[in-house]
């Protein structure tokens, strides 16, 4: 099973010396806004310039083409952007069971993106990431816009995903109850440093 290992990751406003998420584990991150949670997740996915080493199992990030790395370690931001007219073209193969698990009928794929609610967008954004069969996920408040029932479905889906695929999950959450519920470990980030 592949461990996500972040070593001496540096960028302006962020200094992470050592952070490990074993495969199948969910590590919850929290901290005041502006503490660098999003910066950290974006840096791991190599979306912004940063220094340091990130490993997924025995693969080191810098040795993989950037696009390949990001397909394996997918960052899911709190607000999703969509580039096509309908939902379907945003993934090559949608997992039907997962659509159902988050309360969608199959016809959601033909819906116009413009007409999706914030919560629907958030659920579908996680699904389009899962549809790519990533080996690790970086989740930035994945339930921020969901009602309690959908939050519960999302938590279960992601937990099952982590266990079944033995995938490491980094999960930013403001909700202590949620962290206790889904997290195997939790860390607090303050001013770009882990405490």
């Amino acid at each position: 099973m592949a461990e996500l290992w972040i070593e001496r990751l540096e960028r302006p406003g962020l200094h992470i010396t050592d952070l490990r998420v074993p495969g199948g584990h969910i590590l919850c991150l929290h901290g005041p806004s502006g503490s660098g949670k999003t910066l950290l997740l974006r840096a791991i996915a190599d979306l912004d310039p940063n220094n340091g080493q990130v490993w997924l199992g025995d693969r080191v990030r810098e040795r993989l083409p950037a696009a390949q790395w990001r397909r394996q370690v997918i960052y899911v931001p709190p607000v999703s952007h969509w580039w096509a007219e309908t939902v379907r073209p945003h993934a090559a193969r949608w997992a039907e069971d997962m659509l159902a698990a988050l309360g969608f009928e199959r016809d959601v794929l033909d819906w116009s993106v413009r007409r999706l609610s914030t919560g629907e967008r958030q659920r579908l954004a996680v699904l389009r990431a899962l549809a790519r069969e990533p080996e690790a996920l970086l989740l930035d408040e994945p339930t921020a816009n969901l009602d309690p029932a959908n939050t519960e479905h999302m938590e279960k889906l992601l937990r099952d995903f982590a266990r079944e695929r033995q995938a490491p999950l980094l999960w930013v959450s403001h909700d202590p109850a949620q962290r206790a519920q889904v997290g195997d470990t939790e860390h607090r980030l303050v001013e770009g440093r882990l405490q």
């Binding site: 997918i74 931001p77 790519r132």
Partner: peptide, 14 residues
């Protein structure tokens, strides 16, 4: 920017 980065995040090439 959001659209372009969304595609990068999902592993597409630039």
């Amino acid at each position: 920017q959001g659209e372009i980065e969304a595609r990068l995040m999902l592993g597409e090439h630039a």
